[in-house]
Design a protein around this nucleic acid. Structure first.
Length: 440
RNA sequence: CGGGGCAUAGCGUAGCCUGGUAGCGCGUCUGCUUUGGGAGCAGAAGGUCGCAGGUUCAAAUCCUGCUGCCCCGACCA
């Protein structure tokens, strides 16, 4: 992509409403635009990141055996009356009426709707297990939206819903998502730690929040330091192996880890002092088993092997991609700007023509841009007539992992400079070597 | 929902107390020079001072109401 033909509204100064670093940098990097309190438009650069995050989420959901569908944003109030939540939900639910005065709502979540879909088609235990997910915009009319995308009112959410015949099946479904989540966040370069969360009405301890540690995190968390070194399950993990998955989940839940709400200071104090981590954290996902809370009142039942009907056991599993984009910036940034991990970066590399209009730098930059594009590398070509310093600042701000500096100084020796954004390291090499380094 | 604050050009702001032709920096446009860490000079454009009332000869400035947004707390993915 040529910057001269792209839409990248960089802000040199920080809008005053932005307090936290992810909000500031997203506004400055031209990723988002606020349209109302807690409601944002995704500009091209922001959308690229969001799409990359969503792709990883999808790939890992699919790998774990979940199946994607897409439910609407607008739902009927009648559906929510069946579960009793229409009255229970409160003012966070955005309630609207259509032209026929029918009561509708902008969905804050989809348990009722997915249960309705399930019960319409599934009759037998032989059709289980089933896990359906979608990525869809949600709306929760927060009293006080804040921190940019971190707590918006409208946000994108991946929500999965599992259906099983009994608790044992539901537990395996839970474990599938648990492992998928560990992999999902790890692929974005994030070290996530599952922490015990508020248990469902059924009891047990089948709810975990996945927390990413960040200095600027929203809440205080406590955990065992050994989690930081844990190996994330590999891509070929067998999601059908019940004992295999259980072993992974057991390992990842054996040590102490809790958010401030569930913190047990006495238990934490028993850890060796050098193993205690008290830090700030950001919740990026939650997994939850809730049994028959919806299947019972909404009559989502299947016939079991014994011929008897029973309500299915369900769980729901959320990841907030829009929030993840913000969390990634909270974790990966410095004074100059964002430092995207390669898997979610909006572009893989940016070519900086340090002397736009000069025959040699123009030619070398064009060649590099063409060659990288031909190799399928997402490349941004900074071809505006700006001073080098300005181009450096822009490149650092938007956080593209690799920068190729094409300037007269290097070209005099037939070289370009390859800079890595993550650690600032730079190396002179021929354009051919740069191509090999970045294009693989 | 309690408490606090802000609203002046695309962004950041001064002016408001003490009423009298709205200013600065960045950005934008034109020209020339410049080109390895946000260039220099010269010129130009861009404002119903959030909205609605009121006081006054006169309101960005004083008064009233409203709206929007931000921060702290409670709440929440």
């Amino acid at each position: 992509m040529r910057l001269s033909r792209y839409f990248l509204p960089i802000l040199r100064e920080t809008p005053k409403e932005a307090e936290i670093v992810s909000h500031r940098l997203m506004l400055r990097a031209g990723m988002i635009r606020q349209e109302a309190a807690g409601i944002y438009a995704f500009l091209p650069l922001g959308l690229r990141v969001l799409n990359k995050v969503c792709r990883i989420v999808r790939e890992e959901q699919d790998r774990s055996g979940a199946i994607e569908l897409l439910m609407p944003t607008i739902q009927s109030a009648d559906l929510w009356r069946e579960s009793g939540r229409y009255e229970a939900y409160g003012k966070e639910m955005l309630r609207i009426k259509d032209r026929h005065e029918r009561e509708m709502l902008f969905g804050p979540t989809n348990e009722e709707m997915i249960t309705e879909i399930f019960r319409a088609y599934i009759r037998s235990y032989k059709d289980l297990p089933l896990n359906l997910y979608h990525l869809q915009w949600k709306f929760r009319d927060e009293v006080r939206p804040r921190f940019g995308l971190m707590r918006g009112r409208e946000f994108l959410m991946k929500d999965a819903y599992s259906f099983d015949l009994d608790f044992a099946g539901a537990k395996h479904a839970y474990n599938r998502m648990f492992v998928a989540y560990l992999r999902t966040f790890a692929r974005m370069g994030l070290q996530s730690i599952p922490m015990v969360a508020e248990s469902g009405p059924i009891g047990g301890n089948l709810s975990h929040e996945f927390i990413v540690l960040a200095d600027t995190g929203e809440s205080e968390v406590f955990c065992h330091r050994d989690y930081l070194g844990f190996e994330v399950p590999p891509a070929d993990v067998d999601f059908d192996s019940i004992p295999g998955l259980q072993a992974i989940v057991d390992k990842w839940t054996a040590l102490y880890a809790a958010t401030s709400e569930k913190h047990d200071a006495a238990a934490f104090a028993k850890l060796p002092p050098d193993r205690q981590i008290s830090a700030r954290g950001i919740e990026v996902g939650q997994v939850f088993y809730f049994g028959t809370k919806y299947s019972e009142p909404m009559r989502a039942v299947v016939t079991g092997p014994d011929g008897a009907e029973r309500a299915v056991h369900m769980g729901s599993y959320g990841i907030g991609p829009t929030r993840l984009v913000a969390a990634l910036i909270e974790v990966f940034h410095d004074e100059a700007g964002i430092k995207w991990p390669e898997t979610v970066a909006p572009f893989a590399v940016v070519v900086l023509n340090l002397k736009q209009g000069a025959a040699d730098t123009d030619a070398a930059s064009e060649q590099l841009y063409a060659a990288l594009s031909a190799k399928g590398v997402d490349t941004l070509y900074h071809d505006l007539d700006e001073r080098p310093g300005s181009k450096f600042a822009t490149a650092d701000l938007i956080g593209i992992p690799w920068q190729i500096l094409v300037g007269p100084r290097g070209l005099a020796e037939g070289k370009v400079e390859v800079k890595r954004r993550s650690d600032g390291s730079r190396e002179l090499m021929t354009p051919q070597d740069a191509l090999a380094r970045i294009g693989g």
